[in-house]
Design a protein around this nucleic acid. Structure first.
Length: 532
RNA sequence: GGCGGCAUAGCCAAGUGGCUAAGGCAACGGUCUGCAAAAUCGUCAUCCCCAGUUCGACUCUGGGUGCCGCCUCCA
């Protein structure tokens, strides 16, 4: 594909429903606005994906030489925040501040870059009021008892992003939800809401009130990126009505040819909710998962599938006695059909496994092990005096990786490109037989250098391999309830037995370790253990 | 009902109008190993169904079936 030659980037644009070559308003620069979190609770994996996808985009564009201005908002005024704060007996502001902090912690854990600007609704009220006023003045909005509504049928382009027609929507309106009778048409949406007692509010030309849901993004993107900018991102569910309404507001105020040029929407995570009994609880917040898996495992997992596709989040619960997979009914009754074993909810909770995360974790460990061994090799081996040209899988790796990323951020395809080089490197590390010494060094050196760039783009594989592997091992040990000290003790016993060539004792100890869920690797430099 | 998406090996998942349809997991076989494990090498698909366009389609068009999402301030 000639479109994929280095330097050209293709993105899928929801507005045109097709892949388009990225041509930014100003060559070499790119303004990105991304709908950030509503801060009323901890983030879940879906929120994590909605942040990691634009992060990947920003990193890649920067790697390709773009000067990116990345704006991601925080919605700190919202119905959900108000109702949650009422439930908890705290002020909406305190709740929002608290969960903004928690959001930042999760983002840091996931290695998502800070946006260049992180505007908050509460700090953009002035601009929001000005924008609403502009729409009222233009006749595109009207005031009703302190509420201000957008006059949807008067905006010609309404529905162009989500591919809906105003006529059809008017016909079906009201069939699903009750319509506020004060509105001129059911499609009209609130730009400004009159304050109810106890709610946070600001003084406006229409009285005390607060912004509606959609107006904030129009106001904040204009403020920080201008009335027109390059890329607007968010989850698929925001296409309608949120992004459609943003377009109506911004283009209504600033003109039809303004606002975002490319609309990029990420797919959903399919939670395996039906597979899991409610009584076992849900641990799908980012926080709960990063407590049992290295955060980078989550990030890696999110990139194993193309960003527009759905991502299946698997989990399974197994019988503690016979390890059969239990379906929802068996989880609820806490009884295994296969072997008849009866247990309790609490015990079953510990039996929950995340196969897809475990696979991602193993893969990441394989990659880091290869990096660790490569770095050790380069530290001890002698660099060749002359330049050596590296061809083959390792030589082509970075170019192929970038080509995939340039094709609508195809991280899945890009990750696939790494497999051959990894195999080749591990082969070279195991044995230098039949390979020119200088070439061997050059290949491994190029691999490590290429992986550094890959790590910059992905935000993965960039940690110190040894420390990451230690962290990962400790977390996995905790996950399966492994007594590490006991393992280490057995390992020492076994090393002694092996030195004395007492194979039967060595094998017996190995069986014990296997029981614990540990496998042993005997190598030239000693014995190490890992998980089965 | 409206709009949109998806359907590729046991599982997950890229991709292409025509050369051997990436990669991962699992499985099987070889190398390595005291035996193993890890690592490595190899084996493992004709792309939901029907019709059409085309010299040629898994890839394009139409129809069907099946999943899923949005239309309800959930990413």
């Amino acid at each position: 594909m000639s479109d994929n030659s280095l330097g050209t980037i293709v993105l899928y644009n929801t507005m045109t429903a097709s892949k388009e070559k990225l041509e930014t308003l100003e060559p070499g620069k790119c303004g990105i606005y991304c709908c950030g979190p509503t801060v009323y609770d901890y983030t879940h994996l879906g929120n994590a994906r909605a942040a990691v996808v634009p992060d990947l985009m920003v990193r890649f564009l920067r790697h390709q030489g773009y000067e990116v201005k990345y704006v991601r908002n925080v919605t700190d005024i919202d119905d959900k925040i108000i109702s949650r704060s009422a439930e908890q007996g705290v002020s909406p502001t305190d709740l929002a501040v608290r969960f903004t902090e928690e959001y930042h912690k999760d983002m840091t854990a996931l290695n998502a870059l800070d946006p260049d600007v992180e505007p908050k609704v509460s700090e953009t009220i002035e601009e929001i009021i000005a924008l609403v006023k502009q729409l009222v003045d233009k006749g595109l909005a009207y005031d009703m008892d302190g509420d201000v509504y957008y006059r949807v049928p008067d905006f010609k382009g309404y529905g162009k992003l989500s591919n809906r027609s105003v006529e059809e929507m008017l016909e079906s309106a009201g069939s699903r939800i009750d319509v506020d009778q004060r509105k001129e048409t059911p499609l009209d949406f609130a730009l400004w809401k009159a304050a109810k007692p106890g709610e946070p509010s600001w003084t406006s030309p229409w009285g005390e009130g607060r912004p509606g849901w959609h107006i904030e993004c129009s106001a904040m993107s204009s403020k920080h990126l201008g009335d027109s900018f390059d890329i607007h991102g968010g989850g698929r569910d925001l296409i309608f009505p949120h992004h459609e309404n943003e377009i109506a507001q911004s283009q209504g105020a600033h003109g039809e040819d303004t606002y975002a040029k490319y609309w990029v929407h990420n797919g959903f995570i399919n939670f395996a909710g039906e597979k899991m009994s409610k009584s076992l609880g849900n641990f799908f917040t980012t926080r709960e998962l990063t407590a049992i898996f290295p955060p980078e495992t989550l990030r890696y997992y999110l990139m194993t599938v193309h960003y527009r596709s759905g991502l299946n989040f698997d989990l399974e619960v197994t019988c503690p006695a016979c390890h059969a997979v239990l379906d929802k009914e068996q989880q609820e009754s806490a009884k295994c059909e296969a072997c008849g074993h009866e247990t309790t909810s609490d015990i079953l909770k510990k039996q929950v496994r995340f196969p897809s995360l475990e696979e991602a974790d193993d893969r990441l460990a394989y990659i880091y092990s290869t990096l660790e061994a490569s770095q050790k090799f380069l530290e001890t081996a002698k660099a060749p005096g002359q330049d050596v040209v590296v061809e083959g899988a390792v030589g082509e790796m970075l170019g192929a990786f970038i080509a995939h990323m340039a094709n609508d951020l195809n991280s899945s395809g890009a990750l696939g490109v790494l497999s051959k080089p990894l195999g080749e490197i591990n082969g070279l590390l195991a044995s230098g037989k039949g390979v020119n010494k200088a070439l061997r060094f050059a290949i491994i050196d190029l691999f490590v250098k290429s992986m550094k760039e890959v790590a910059e783009i992905l935000g993965c594989f960039g940690k110190d391999p040894s420390s990451w592997l230690v962290q990962r091992r400790d977390m996995k040990a905790a996950r399966i309830g492994l007594d590490t000290d006991k393992v280490e003790g057995l390992l020492i016993e076994r090393i002694t037995a092996r030195q004395e060539k007492d194979w039967s004792a060595a094998d017996r100890i190995r069986d014990e370790l296997t029981e614990l869920g540990v496998s042993v690797q005997d190598g030239a430099t000693g014995s190490v253990w890992s998980f089965i």
